[in-house]
């Protein structure tokens, strides 16, 4: 047991990530607003649908603004709460907009003391119905002040992602663990080429096997997410998907290559060299090429992922342990593969 503490640690960390990753709620946010196409100079009532919000359970009044830019905002004239997640918000949009554009986009900001400030960025469009001098009077500015902050643990609320932001702990961590396992495998391949010990070859093979398994699970889980977000399991237009598929095929070829040799020494030598080349191909395929183009994948092309508000400190508290947990469990599984492989080669020698 004293030697196996890291296995228990991996399991405990994974249990922690599963519970924390699933139980911590999302921050309150605005799910939708209807109508979203507004005209200047009209009085409009917007139906706001919130997510995880408590509109009726607050002490302070709900406040709402339409925000054009950092200096221009108007506040709601009337607010009618239907239930915790639904509210009718009325605005009196002035007839002249402080902009030269025919159509301008605006954000909706709502705030109360229970849910904190919520923003639906650039979802509203305001069309100019009459041409008025942009410098003319008439735009009453209502500064957005005294915004509340949501207290307690919560994950960020992001459009497109919503609850699937939790996939950071399941889908993304598998890729991180895969990279760590494949690096370990390459180190063992180098070790084998230095002193030709069969154990290093067996270890390298088992790390590659579990790394490939994690990679495949990563592709499958990504595919499930894509079906509900992009409407398709696989798209050939996504560079990131295609490149990881190629990388995994290279690693599958590694196992085909291994199974085509009868002589263990020969197999180990060629597999070690192939493994090093496969890893050399993996780096540009996974880290370089997807970053050169625009993509719909979170983290590329301005889509939400690993930075700023997308990976906040609460998420880091689950995300980093999840990487460690998956890596430890991956090492555990590859150790079992290694022991089976060593046993097999020992039996074959007799």
């Amino acid at each position: 047991m004293r030697k196996n503490w890291w296995k228990a640690l991996g399991v405990v960390i994974l249990i922690y990530t599963y519970t924390a990753g699933l139980l911590i709620p999302l921050k309150p946010g605005i799910l939708s607003v209807n109508p979203s196409n507004l005209n200047s100079g009209e009085e409009v009532t917007l139906t706001v649908i919130g997510y995880n919000t408590f509109f009726t359970k607050t002490e302070s009044e709900l406040r709402a603004w339409i925000k054009l830019d950092n200096e221009h905002a108007i506040s709601a004239t009337k607010i009618e709460l239907v239930n915790d997640t639904k509210a009718h918000v009325s605005f009196n949009i002035p007839s002249n907009l402080p902009t030269e554009d025919k159509v301008t986009d605006a954000s909706l900001v709502i705030d109360n003391d229970q849910d904190g400030a919520m923003v639906l960025p650039s979802k509203l469009t305001i069309k100019k119905t009459i041409d008025v001098n942009p410098n003319a009077e008439g735009w009453t500015n209502a500064p957005i002040t005294d915004l509340n902050r949501k207290t307690g643990f919560s994950f960020p609320f992001r459009g497109i992602l919503y609850e699937t932001i939790r996939n950071t702990y399941f889908h993304v961590c598998l890729w991180f663990a895969m990279i760590i396992l494949l690096i370990t495998s390459v180190v063992h391949s180098f070790k084998y080429l230095r002193n030709f010990r069969m154990e290093d070859d067996q270890k390298s093979m088992s790390f590659t096997m579990v790394g490939t398994l994690f990679g495949m699970l990563g592709i499958i889980t990504g595919s499930i997410w894509a079906k509900d977000t992009w409407g398709t399991y696989w798209t050939w237009e996504e560079v990131k998907l295609n490149m990881t598929a190629i990388a995994l095929l290279i690693y599958l070829a590694y196992f085909v290559l291994r199974s085509s040799f009868d002589d263990y020494e020969k197999r180990a030598r060629i597999a070690a060299v192939y493994n090093i080349f496969a890893f050399a191909a993996l780096i540009p395929l996974i880290f370089v090429i997807p970053r050169l183009t625009d993509s719909l994948h979170p983290g590329n092309g301005g889509n939400p992922a690993m930075g700023g508000e997308d990976l906040d400190n609460t998420m880091r508290m689950v995300f980093y342990p999840a990487i460690i947990g998956w890596t430890l469990v991956g090492v555990w599984i590859s150790q079992i593969v290694f022991r089976i492989q060593r046993l097999k080669e020992k039996i074959m020698e007799f």
Binding site: L31, E163, N167
Partner: peptide
Amino acid sequence: SIGKIYVVVAVIVAIFIGI
């Protein structure tokens, strides 16, 4: 529905089946 939470459930089930 419910902010796409079932996608997360499907992902977890897929990982479980895979392992």
